[in-house]
Design a protein around this nucleic acid. Structure first.
Lengths: 204, 204, 204, 204
DNA sequence: GATGAATGAGGATTCATTCAT
DNA sequence: AATGAATGAATCCTCATTCAT
């Protein structure tokens, strides 16, 4: 069976990889990509520097892996929450809330996501296409929710692509505001405020 | 009078400073702070590397000066446009439009602002308080507009501080979307769409 | 008897050792000593890296062993061919031909011998005395042939030590030329040309 | 005038370049390319490590420049000596003597040339074509001398290309022998011995 | 004031060697 | 005996900053 097929080796690999990614997130979050050193990541992970290179071929690959894992979980959580919601308004709320809650629980990831993601979008890099793709998947998810709302008459007939982008980004900003300005507030409150504004903004 | 007080020396100083800031913005915009080199900035400015250090004490100071100048102009333009607008809705529109238009005209500044500003907010640094202050001035400006709208009955009674932050950030995101996804569209169109959404979101 | 004294253990040891030496020669030949990695040697040998260290105490020892084995075979073959030859001229020819043929059949060894041997001669190292010794044995062998030729009146009365060195080195160069510039020519042709030149050079 | 056109800058550049090349030759000669460190070269040159990189883009470029300069001088000297000789035999002697003498006077260069050149011939590298070219120029020079000898009846009708290569390499070996085994002997003695052997080998 | 040659601290990466399993 | 994950010393190269001219 697949699960039992995992050997001790696989488990160790996954464990170490996870440890390193965790340490990487901590260090990248506190200094930013450029000032973070592989040395410090190794220290935090409790490993020797060379060991890092057994699991990731370069500092950049490690960084991208740490970012990618977070983005995938973030997007996955949004997808699931939306899937469980029934009404269109609830789906918008689910989107906002899923992102807010994930970032609230993964503050190191949030700091990297918030401070380094823009560079990836703007500067062409090996990683750009990959993250662009993840981004567009989420956009399409939002678009389909909006289209559903328009079809159902709850949302005004707007350009779905543009509105999806704006909602996505407004949520991104709201998350940042929550984390930076109101970090001790309950996520639900922020979700309510933001969803209310969005819903009125796009609703009939 | 101030103007007559400016000596030739002052003028040259200002001229050189401006040249260097322009070159800095070009280089920081295309590579990001960390990968930009003082050498390249000097090249672009047509000066020797040492000369840069006669005008700015360090790479970081140069970076902050370049960013600060842009942020001040950006904020100044928003302030002026708002001052010229009469109705509350027009003031919101003026805020959005001023920012959008400034970034559209100063693309190098935009790239720096977009990619590096978040790090300054998140990472404690010498520069943080200064930019925090500029930021809060704009927030208070927006707050006063919102308070005016609430008092006048055009805006629902919301938490002005929070809504100001959200509008500020939503605008920031919208500007980014405009620049990255719809760079050839006329700024007014984006302004209309965004203002409409915001106004419906917060209006009665 | 010696043969019966060899246990299964001895045989395995010798087998593994041979495998590793073969892999080492392949890898050292293609990248040179400095750029060759123990990892790649282990890969080529189909063994784990640690296993290499059960048979050889260090990368350098492995290298020297690979080189030594080749040099010993090369010298041994020259010795045998010379012993089988009858006339002095035939002995010179046998020397040239034995070396040429051995290198032609063991191209990986040749590349190491050709590219790395000089460093051992020039740089004092642990290994120097050993290879110096092997070298001098061959020189003495050649000297005795030359002395025989002088005594028999076929060779002019020259300084045997010097001429032996020159013939040895001329042969070494000729082998290199053959391998690099005329690799598809039959060894005999090169042997004939070289022997002819040497023989005329030293003959009466 | 061109000579007076050399600015102070040019002179400093040439001076530093020369200093660095000299230090590089010293260090590469004593440890070999792989074990030599840029740090040590800088130390020997009395400069900081970074300074080396102002003059040479990489360790390898520095190495190749050091080698190239020597090879060019070596070849140039051979060319000049040959040009000054009148008879064919004198030209052969001039070739041998020029090389021997140059190496005798530039022992660090000799060690590098002797220990690292073979790798360049065998391992494909960026530098290969360049040195191959220099090598072939010398071969053609020798070939023309031999052809002249054959035409004049002093040399037997041999394959000029092959014989040129063999003489070139025999000389190379003889130089090595002189440097390593008889370093205190006067170069002329070795030249005489070697030229005599070569001349008898190829002469009528 | 302007220059740009020199500096050297700092950091990513490699790889021979070890040792617990 | 065999393994291969872990180690960390070693080294190349970059670039912000300084300072003599």
């Amino acid at each position: 069976m697949a699960l039992l097929g995992r050997t001790k080796k696989d488990i160790l690999l996954e464990f170490r990889t996870g440890e390193i990614l965790h340490a990487a997130r901590t260090v990248f979050a506190s200094h930013g990509y450029a000032k973070a050193t592989v040395d410090e990541i190794a220290d935090v992970a409790g490993l020797a520097k060379g060991t890092i290179y057994l699991y990731f071929p370069s500092k950049q690959d490690l960084f991208l892996a740490a970012l990618r894992e977070g983005v995938e979980q973030l997007h996955g959580q949004a997808r699931e929450h939306i899937a469980r919601a029934t009404s269109v308004e609830e789906k918008i709320r689910a989107f906002v809330n899923a992102r807010l809650e994930y970032c609230d629980r993964n503050r190191d990831f949030f700091r990297i996501y918030y401070t380094e993601f823009a560079s990836l979008q703007v500067r062409s890099s090996r990683a750009q296409p990959e993250f662009q793709d993840l981004y567009e998947q989420q956009l399409r998810l939002l678009e389909s929710v909006i289209a559903e709302g328009i079809a159902g008459g709850q949302i005004r007939p707007l350009d779905t692509a543009k509105v999806a982008r704006l909602i996505y980004e407004a949520t991104r900003s709201a998350v940042a505001q929550h984390m930076l300005a109101w970090p001790d507030q309950r996520p639900e409150e922020t979700t309510n405020l933001v969803t209310d504004l969005i819903w009125r903004g796009i609703g009939c």
